[in-house]
Design a protein around this nucleic acid. Structure first.
Lengths: 191, 191
DNA sequence: GTTTTTCTGGACTCATCGTTCCGAAACCTT
DNA sequence: AAGGTTTCGGAACGATGAGTCCAGAAAAAC
């Protein structure tokens, strides 16, 4: 009974995500959000809570979004090829004009220490998760004999995480895409 | 003639720098600034212009501040030792509780595309400058025979820049300091 | 058609932002 | 001491942000 929901929640979250991603938490205004999400002010507050709540939902939404790329890490013919395809796609996305630069987690770094602790926790968790996945990949590669037995999975994971975030930042600063490719190639070759 | 200035301009800029550095441009409010700088609202506007102008002065101030560390790159007994002392100090500063995390330029990267173009230009220049210095260091190391002739100075400089900014971000996200040291050691050893 | 729920639009409150302004105090010069 | 100049503090202004509220339109269920 009653009127049914007439907007797509996922679609609206998607729009909100791009806004927060591009402009950051502070510079994303409710007025921008309702415009891009295509809903009214009241609907936003009724359906998503306040700005903080919406931001949490967006971070959750972003997580799902990021998992698609992450799956590349286990889909290649071997460990190094998987890593390469992951990083190549990362570079292409970072240098694409269709989506915002960098990643929403990296962009949120300034919020740490100044935002609601429950949001900070989400940020820290998301940040650490990719590192864990890298570690798994390296351990799998060691078991397969594709990666040197001397490699320290924790350190390598850290170094890959570092590479990942560098690409984010470098793309913001408009550094040549080519250099990113070279660094990825070299890093993976040295594993 | 007239009343003389009763506050130290450099000291005030220093306080402003820490604030912008820690909170970022948007989240640094004039009210915070006048409190920390120890001057009144009108004095701030009279002496430093508006927020944008003050931010430019702060970036300039930060530049001088950063040069002290940069000199380490040319002060060691050899190229690799110099690089090590530079990065070691960088890590220590990033993990110190006395100064804000990361660096003001990295933090400001979020503003790119949304701020006054003249400020954006300063940011891009500052960012590129460190890369140039790294390149010089590598070229010098090649001439000295300390670094392999096959090394591509441009790529190595990019990779060191990348390392530098990773440390910034990793410290924000509270990653273990130890991993940063290990990555620095490995990166420099592989040169 | 009636009821129930969703959604809209706009007006509203409250807080806080950046900025301006002005009178008074402090200082230098003569 | 007097006059001119600059600093300084606080009040005030205008803009804009987040969030609330409500009357009514729209859409679905009964």
């Amino acid at each position: 009974m009653g009127r049914s929901i007439s907007f797509n929640k996922e679609h609206a979250l998607d729009k909100a995500m791009y806004l927060f991603w591009e402009k950051g938490y502070d510079a994303t205004y409710i007025s921008d959000l309702i415009e891009k999400m295509g809903i009214s002010r009241s609907t936003l507050y009724d359906s998503f809570g306040d700005k903080d709540e919406l931001y949490k939902l967006v971070l959750e939404h972003y997580k799902n979004y990021g998992h698609r790329k992450r799956n590349l890490l286990f889909s290649g013919i071997n460990t190094k090829a998987s890593l390469k395809s992951f990083f190549y796609q990362h570079i292409e996305k970072c240098y694409s004009d269709d989506i915002p630069k960098s990643c929403i987690i990296t962009n949120s770094s300034l919020l740490i220490g100044h935002i609601d602790p429950s949001i900070e926790e989400i940020l820290l968790n998301d940040f650490n998760e990719l590192e864990k996945v890298f570690k798994q990949v390296i351990e799998k590669g060691k078991n397969n004999g594709e990666i040197s037995q001397e490699a320290n999975p924790e350190l390598v994971a850290y170094s890959l995480l570092s590479l990942n975030h560098s690409i984010n930042l470098m793309s913001k600063y408009k550094k040549e895409k080519n250099l990113a490719y070279n660094l990825v190639d070299k890093t993976i070759a040295d594993l």
